[in-house]
Design a protein around this nucleic acid. Structure first.
Length: 476
DNA sequence: ATGTCC
């Protein structure tokens, strides 16, 4: 299946009708320019997803979509367990519950500017970053299981952050249904010293300026004020999530034939949601989600400590925490009827609109915050969920800029030092243990985050609330 | 994304 199979159903909506083994249409949301530049692999991958058993509605790709393992990154697909719907480790992604959280500071940009070097240094000292980095917390087996069951709630009980944070995290900070016993010893072993670390690749911690407000009401509800600084943290479940993905991918590849599932691509390995393996993966994946929530909670605590050291007493309430590599059981309208579905969002953000009963009351009038990370040195955005997104993509939106170039190609094109210097010339301090990582993450290796967000906003996948510009970036 | 191949 190539791009010629996708016809322009409406501005920004590209649709491939079911043919061959496809059970539902494949739909790509992207402006013309983004569609023209879309990674060819996305057409194949979103079409392959449309062939999986029990898929409901359509297989979707967001404006930031690009090639991923099996499913595209920027992919959304919902499955009905009653129709032998499947769950796929590759459909969640290796970095289970990778996501973004935003912390308000209410400090003026001027105040940050005066202490910018100091806060960059302090954050870099406080936040363990980079491949294989170890944290300040060691988890023995019993504590590991409590963390996997409790998520950010466990972290708060251990003294990281406070209880008020929990209301500002998806699932109130603790993913129910987590089963630590379904997580391999190997996965746990990898995590015992990695909790409270940033990781590498596209993960970062940024101090950002609220540079522009698009929606005053939503911004007020979110606590965003122009000219103030916020902190955004992008990271996931580290070695544990990766190992869960690896473990279950192998099991699913082996088991697929036994379930009578014909895979268009081995990388789409999956199993019925209602199977023992499916239930075990769900339990493990939810434990991985709690690991990511605990991880971001500890990093928030460390961030607050760094700010207190440089700026004195600062209130730093949480704006929100979203996960963009998940599979969640949710109720959605299918042909006008509510149905329980398992929604895979891989590199896609949940974007519940106003009135959704599962949202914290503070967001029920404006919709949930949708946190969109830019590439290093480019704009990030805060969006709000819309009602329309429910009919477009099971209440989902994009998650970031999306890669435009492979890591290898980026590494050949740029030197890390030159990227750091160029950003410094623009007043952005980048601190990273890996100059190679910085080269791989060069801003031009990504799509333009503003184009992606404008596309999502125009379509109504989510609506723009605020634009954020980086001042300090701790890069993993 | 990832002790970037057990």
């Amino acid at each position: 299946m190539d791009r010629s199979n996708f016809h322009r159903q409406a501005p920004g909506i590209w649709r491939a009708e079911p043919s061959g083994a496809m059970r539902v249409p494949a739909i790509i949301y992207a402006d013309d320019a983004l569609m023209l530049a879309m990674d060819d692999k996305v057409f194949d991958q979103v079409t392959n997803v449309a062939m999986l058993p029990g898929i409901v509605g359509a297989a979707y790709a967001m404006p930031d979509a690009h090639w991923g393992y099996g499913f595209p990154i920027g992919g959304v697909a919902a499955f009905d367990p009653e129709q032998d719907g499947v769950i796929s480790a590759g459909g969640v992604g290796f970095d289970i519950s990778c996501g973004v959280r935003a912390v308000l500071t209410h400090l003026s940009v001027e105040r940050i500017q005066r202490g910018k070097e100091q806060i960059a240094e302090r954050l870099y000292q406080s936040i363990p970053a980079g491949l294989g980095s170890k944290g300040h917390v060691h988890l023995d087996p019993a504590e590991m299981d409590r963390m996997l069951a409790g998520g950010a709630r466990w972290a708060v009980s251990e003294g990281y952050g406070d209880a008020a944070d929990l209301a500002r995290i998806e699932e109130s900070g603790c993913m129910p249904g987590a089963d630590p016993a379904a997580v391999s010893e190997h996965a746990k072993q990898r995590q015992q010293d990695e909790i409270g670390t940033l990781g590498s690749g596209n993960h970062y911690l940024e101090v950002q300026e609220v540079a522009e407000i698009f929606d005053e009401d939503a911004a007020a509800a979110f606590g965003l004020r122009r000219g103030e600084a916020i902190v955004s943290i992008h990271c996931g479940s580290r070695g544990l999530g990766h190992q869960i993905g690896t473990d279950f991918l192998h099991e699913m590849v082996t088991a697929a034939a036994g379930f009578g599932i014909e895979l268009p691509d081995r990388e789409l390995a999956c199993c019925p949601i209602r199977s023992e393996l499916g239930q075990r993966y769900l339990g493990a994946m939810r434990a991985g989600t709690n690991c990511a929530l605990a991880n971001r909670q500890i990093l928030t605590h460390l961030t607050r400590g760094a700010f207190a050291h440089v700026f004195g007493r600062v209130e730093m309430p949480l704006l929100f925490d979203v996960s963009h590599n998940t599979c969640k059981e949710e109720t959605h309208l299918v042909a006008g009827k509510p149905q329980r579905l398992f929604v895979h969002r891989k590199g896609a953000t949940r974007a519940f609109g106003p009135g959704n009963p599962t949202l914290p009351p503070v967001f029920s009038a404006v919709g949930q915050p949708v946190l969109i990370g830019g590439s290093m040195g480019t704009s990030s955005y805060v969006l709000a969920g819309t009602r329309k997104s429910e009919e477009l993509a099971f209440s989902s939106a994009c998650h970031g800029a999306g890669r435009r170039m492979s890591r290898h190609a980026a590494m050949r094109q740029w030197r890390g030092r030159a990227v750091v210097d160029a950003l410094a010339d623009r007043g952005i301090i980048v601190r990273s243990p890996s100059l190679r990582g910085v080269a791989e993450e060069a801003p031009l290796a990504y799509k333009n985050s503003s184009e992606v967000v404008d596309s999502a906003d125009r379509l109504g996948l989510a609506r723009k609330v605020a634009r954020l510009e980086p001042m300090v970036c701790i890069k993993g």
